[in-house]
Design a protein around this nucleic acid. Structure first.
Lengths: 233, 233
DNA sequence: CGAAAAAGATGACTTTTGTCAGTTGCTTTC
DNA sequence: GAAAGCAACTGACAAAAGTCATCTTTTTCG
């Protein structure tokens, strides 16, 4: 594989996956020429809430958490972004500072698309806007659903929910363990609870035969059981 | 005031307030000719989740709650829409069934804009799309913030929050009582708690001198105190 | 390697939240 | 205007969630 080819947006897998797919080839080329491809290591920050972004980030590889610090000092993870997703678009569109912080959950490859390229396409390419609009509409629905779940489901249910989410979105490795490995603390931050309670809940699930664990790795052994728990049967 | 004039979108206050403001006069005229203006009584349903919408609704007067039924059988109010706001746009853009149900909280005046007019403007008027995009970006930020609050704040704080929200968004009447009067049950559905706990919390606030009540009406007597509670001081 | 740091885990306890059952009081309606 | 129905409210209790202290295991890094 040719690394030079690989690093160009025209051939980037992202083109196929995200809102940018509506960009015409020439536009992608223009963006590609100006873009900066970055490697981000696990745990490193991509941007912080309150920061002015001067571009958007396309996830080429790896996974990132998007979180917001609550007034009580706890981080709440609002979204997990992976290959093909764009981060920072909301802030650029709204012309506001970032509302969320982005941190790499594992080693990542990112494309950086400068603000100018982004806003130019925004004003000149109707298909791009349409795709963006649809993307935002989808994100909004997701967010509304999360609100309902946060407000109405118990910690038990929400922990079951994140496990199911990780399974369906990132799959499992050869041994059947969830491919995306989160720390107990990160799981707690997604669920919106204390780390201790999160750990206890996982321990309980283990005793009930819903999951198995090995270190921080988790294997779902009874998906149906977790489903039922999630749905509140 | 001429009711005929008043019912035309060209002159509608909504034009000034919402995403539709980018529509050109001719487009507004076209929409106006086809639109249906409706009067909805308090408590009546505007649309239900799962329903296919064949247009969007502009709130000309009154207030509506947008809620979603959780699997546990409880309603979660996700948003309160008032004058100048558009309901149903997300579903039309995403070409999905409604994710939320809309019910009138008091008597309402609504403009109905058929799908065809909406999508036509969407494909032909770049400024309209830009405005919509910005609007959705803002809603997404709001939704993310609600997620954090739901996950990280206590019922106490969230009840204080809704009171402050009602105060800043709908103001007070001559006696200083919150203009928008919600039932205890609706407040609980916004906060995401049980009605009993919501009532207890309000009673406690009353004892602490933060609010006064008269029937279901609520007066904020110590806004600063509520603010501090909300911020978790 | 081995010490230090970070993450995982558990117990004991407190606080918060939910639930059920029932009372009061207002409002709607025939 | 009385009865019905609903919303507001209260008490008692149960369940869920949070906190603090402590210990163990894993990871990191000089």
């Amino acid at each position: 594989m040719n690394p030079h080819e690989e690093s160009r947006c025209e051939n980037c897998i992202i083109r196929e996956l995200n809102a940018l797919r509506s960009l015409k080839k020439e536009e992608l080329k223009a963006i590609s020429d100006s873009k900066v491809s970055r490697t981000i290591k696990k745990g490193e920050s991509i941007f912080k809430e309150g920061e002015k972004l001067n571009g958007v980030f396309c996830v080429r590889d790896g996974v990132s958490k998007l979180s917001k610090l609550s007034e009580n000092g706890k981080d709440q993870i609002v979204k997990i972004a992976s290959k093909g997703e764009v981060m920072g678009q909301r802030s650029l569109i709204a012309e506001e500072a970032a509302n969320l912080s982005a941190v790499a959950l594992n080693d990542m490859q990112l494309c950086f698309i400068p603000k100018e390229n982004f806003t130019e396409s925004l004003s000149k390419n109707p298909e791009f806007i349409q795709a963006l609009l649809k993307n935002m509409a989808h994100e909004l629905k997701m967010a509304d659903d999360v609100i309902v779940n946060m407000a109405q489901k118990t910690v038990n249910q929400r922990v079951a929910g994140i496990l199911l989410y990780l399974d369906t979105h990132f799959g499992t490795d050869a041994d059947g363990y969830l491919s995306l490995v989160l720390s107990r603390n990160d799981i707690a931050d997604v669920v919106g609870t204390a780390t201790e309670l999160c750990i206890r809940t996982l321990t309980k699930f283990k005793k009930e035969g819903l999951i198995e664990t090995e270190g921080k790795r988790i294997k779902i052994s009874d998906r149906e059981g977790l489903d039922q728990l999630w749905e509140g049967v």
